[in-house]
Design a protein around this nucleic acid. Structure first.
Length: 499
RNA sequence: UCCUCGGUAGCUCAAUGGUAGAGCAUGCGGCUGUUAACCGCAGGGUUGUAGGUUCGAGUCCUACCCGGGGAGCCA
């Protein structure tokens, strides 16, 4: 009999099936063992009753340890208490490989410990949910563009071009000459847009930024659509439709996964067009306004009352401690650890918020937004927002200038709500040869390397636009994750290149 | 590079300058419906490294190493 995948068990109530998988968890009492089996498509509890199985199967179930691989046979039964509503009454089982000392035990682990064992951690429930959402987001992206007639193209990874300065590029030796790992497929995307009108890239990019934050990877996947004959407004509308699609596909296909991750689904349901569009100048005003000040004050008050509640609870727990029974003391000890961890978090936020407000209040027109500024901006809205028309100095050399105000570039960023920040950056590209030549000179870029790019403006130049979406930041937002390193199977960060 | 927090048992964390502990994991025993099961017993430690202060240092001081978070930069 061929093995059945766990995800298809619901439709097989009453029939006898064979499953193959790994033991995720075991609970035993006299004459009865509960095995939770994982096969990548889901989890199912298998009940081994000593009365119903032969001696060999019973012995196997008894000795079995976490992550032992096995084949199990049994009848699918309805049990409302289980996830998926079914469990398997085991009639026989066979160990394939018995494990001893699997390092990731069913308890809380620290980040470093888990990252060092990422190759095993990926078997756990949270990574399972995240990787399934990532897969869903990837399919959603392809479907969105394919349905709209975009051509998928692969930009080169090895390149000579430094699109936004060389300080953040990984340099390699290319047969004796310097070359770089690409940090964007955009320039090559523009080439293909002039050949196919609407294209998108989907590939890895590399940034040698020495950033150690929850938003940064040195290797990540970027999606960059590029459209001939699109102006800034059309570009923004496309980005909007795109994110609405990604969020709704995730809600439709990954509700279980998102719930396992504790995601607030209502926040995702609010991702509907139109997104608020505000200009950079309006955003600056908003940052400096009393509205932002009040928002910060409300947050600070909430944190203060949470802090005093936690401290009160800690004191009252301590005062009763002596009279408690042993098992209750352990409860209190565990709760104390929880309280301490949350208090540390609250304390850090309380330290940060006044600084954030300070820097927002003193923000001067012309600068680029920092992470805290973006967070404060998104707190004003319940869905993603689009900020457009930035000062040209903070944007890339290839951005088109605003015909109505030469100080501005026709760039736009999409900021995800709930503090997740920038997930899309893009804009309308400069289509005038003389302007681009001047820009390359002003930015001190090697002119020779851009000759082929200039050709696009020599032969049938048209208005065109595009944007780049960071896949991992998007998955992070959809899943509601604290840290981007959980969104990619093998994250590459400052100081981590293994596993 | 800078700022900030941390490093104690396999893991997560406790411990006014005064005898290093708990939970989980592991092993053994108990329990026929468990949901991070529960109950009993047992083993498990060079408190990151090197110095210093002190009658006495996990705790205080100095330097270094490693890690978390943040700034800059960015998706």
């Amino acid at each position: 009999m061929a093995a059945i995948m766990i995800e298809s068990l619901e439709g097989r109530v009453g029939s006898v099936v064979t499953l193959q998988g790994w033991l995720q968890q075991k609970r035993a009492s006299k004459g009865l063992i509960f095995l939770v089996i994982r096969d990548g498509t889901g989890l199912v509890q298998c009940v081994v009753n000593q009365r119903d199985v032969d001696e060999h199967s019973w012995a196997s179930a008894s000795t079995m340890t976490q992550e032992t691989s096995l084949t199990v046979k049994g009848e699918v039964c309805v049990d409302e208490r289980q996830i998926g509503g079914v469990e398997v009454q085991v009639s026989g089982l066979e160990i394939i490989h018995l494990v001893s000392d699997y390092p990731i035990t069913p308890k809380v682990h620290g980040v470093e410990f888990l990252m060092d064992r990422r190759h095993l951690w990926l078997r756990s429930r949270r990574p399972w949910a995240v990787m399934r959402v990532r897969n869903c987001v990837i399919m959603s992206i392809h479907n969105f563009f394919q349905e709209r007639g975009f051509l998928q193209m692969d930009a080169p990874i090895l390149t000579q071009n430094a699109v936004e300065g060389t300080s953040t590029l990984f340099e390699i030796d290319y047969f004796g000459s310097p070359a770089y790992l690409t940090q964007s497929g955009q320039l090559h995307g523009e080439v293909m847009a002039m050949a196919f009108s609407k294209i998108y890239t989907f590939g890895p990019v590399f940034r040698a930024e020495k950033s150690k934050t929850r938003r940064h990877l040195t290797e990540f996947w970027m999606i960059e659509p590029e459209m001939a004959f699109y102006d800034l407004d059309m570009n923004m509308t496309l980005a909007e439709d795109f994110l609405v699609r990604v969020a709704s596909d995730a809600l439709r296909n990954c509700e279980d996964e998102l719930e396992l991750l504790g995601r607030d689904l209502d926040a995702l349901r609010r991702v509907q067009a139109p997104f608020p569009r505000i200009s950079y100048s309006e955003a600056v005003e908003l940052l400096r306004s009393d509205k932002t000040k009040r928002l910060v004050e409300v947050k600070i008050d909430a944190l203060h009352s949470e802090k005093s509640d936690l401290e009160k609870e800690r004191v009252s727990n301590k005062s009763n401690y002596g009279q408690l029974k042993e098992w209750k003391k352990r409860r209190v000890d565990a709760r104390e650890i929880e309280i301490n961890a949350r208090l540390a978090q609250v304390q850090e936020e309380l330290r940060n918020l006044p600084r954030w407000w300070q820097s927002a209040a003193e923000f001067e027109w012309g600068g680029d937004f920092g992470g805290s500024d973006e967070t404060l901006l998104t707190w004003h809205f319940d869905r993603p927002i689009i900020v457009h028309r930035y000062p040209e100095a903070v944007k890339a050399f290839y951005m088109k200038r605003d015909p109505e105000d030469d100080r501005l570039a026709l760039g736009m960023d999409v900021l995800a709500p709930e503090g997740f920040g920038e997930i899309i950056g893009g804009g309308q590209r400069a289509d005038d040869l003389a302007f681009l030549e001047e820009q390359v000179e002003r930015h001190d870029l090697p002119r020779e390397a851009f000759e082929w790019y200039f050709d696009l403006r020599r032969y049938g130049s048209v208005p065109h636009s595009g944007f780049g979406l960071g896949l991992e930041r998007t998955v992070s937002w959809i899943c509601g994750l604290e840290h981007i390193r959980e969104t990619i199977p093998f994250p590459r960060t400052l100081g981590r290149l293994t596993p």
